[in-house]
């Protein structure tokens, strides 16, 4: 039991959602600190001292050579042991947008029991061919072991990416991720009734990137490492919603996205 879990929010090299990601962890009751990747490399900071690791959104290294590739390589080669130890010690990790791309490209997601850091999936250019910022509706898999999404059904969140198409070209492997309930959330048509997540393609722009089977986020086999393309931290309060001016009273300010951070911090508080 820790009363106030400490969250390391990665920063540097073009990560750009670090400030708001730090803020939402604080709102959820954690003590959050922005940690530059190089502070982990130099040993000035160590992941060992934290209970949660967040890799926020951004454009690390300008998305050159494929989004997330270069930052993923820094983590995979420069601080490999620290990262693997953190994951193996059962501490929760979240990667959002560019952070998700980083975790996928370095092989931490969908990942494997051994934490071998072998890449099996990818995030590639949206079929539309361009970056866009628009709000989507996510539906969560209630059978998933993901600790970050416990009890969640649906959530409205913005996507802000050009390379968010989740692909696993190996059909058998993709099927296995489904069977292991590692597919955590998918894009759905908000006019349908819960639950409606399905394999048939949800049309653009409801699924903004033509992801395979509408996948928006996945977790590792333990459910502790979670990544997703949309930005739950961007909906931390109601007045940041896409249509909040149509939805009446704002006196209860907390936004839909906070549930994910409450879950992550709560898990760390109760289990570490």
């Amino acid at each position: 039991m820790v009363d106030t879990p400490r969250a390391a929010v990665l920063t540097g090299f073009g990560i750009n959602c670090d400030v708001e990601t730090m803020a939402v962890f604080e709102m959820a009751g954690a003590e959050a600190q922005r940690v530059h990747v190089n502070q982990l490399v130099s040993g000035a900071d160590s992941l060992e001292d934290f209970h949660i690791l967040a890799v926020p959104g951004g454009f690390s290294f300008g998305d050159h050579l494929g989004s997330g590739r270069l930052l993923g390589n820094r983590l995979r080669f420069a601080i490999r042991e620290q990262v693997c130890d953190f994951v193996r010690s059962g501490k929760p990790v979240i990667g959002i947008c560019n952070g998700f791309q980083v975790l996928v490209k370095m092989g931490l997601l969908p990942g494997d029991e051994e934490v071998s850091l072998s890449q099996t999936a990818s995030l590639t250019l949206n079929d539309s061919g361009h970056y866009e910022d628009r709000w989507v509706t996510l539906e969560f898999n209630d059978a998933s072991p993901c600790v970050w999404t416990d009890g969640l059904e649906r959530m409205r969140v913005p996507v802000r990416h050009g390379e968010g198409k989740f692909v696993v070209p190996d059909a058998e492997l993709l099927q296995r991720y489904f069977e292991q309930q590692q597919v955590v959330c998918r894009y759905v048509d908000p006019s349908t009734r819960y639950p409606s997540a399905a394999d048939e393609p949800v049309p653009y722009p409801l699924c903004p990137n033509a992801s395979m089977r509408n996948i928006a986020g996945v977790c590792d086999p333990t459910g502790l490492v979670f990544g997703l393309m949309p930005h739950p931290e961007a909906n931390f309060t109601k007045w940041l919603g896409a249509t909040w001016t149509r939805e009446g009273d704002q006196s209860d300010w907390e936004g839909e996205g906070m549930a994910i951070f409450h879950n992550g911090v709560g898990y760390a508080r109760n289990n570490l």
Binding site: N16, E132, R160, H231, A234, L240, A242, T243, T245
Partner: peptide, 19 residues
């Protein structure tokens, strides 16, 4: 839409609104 108009988590009235 191809500009990120809400990074930093602060944009209350956005370029687009309505149902």
């Amino acid at each position: 839409r191809s500009y990120d108009h809400e990074v930093i988590g602060q944009t209350v009235i956005k370029p687009f609104c309505g149902v």
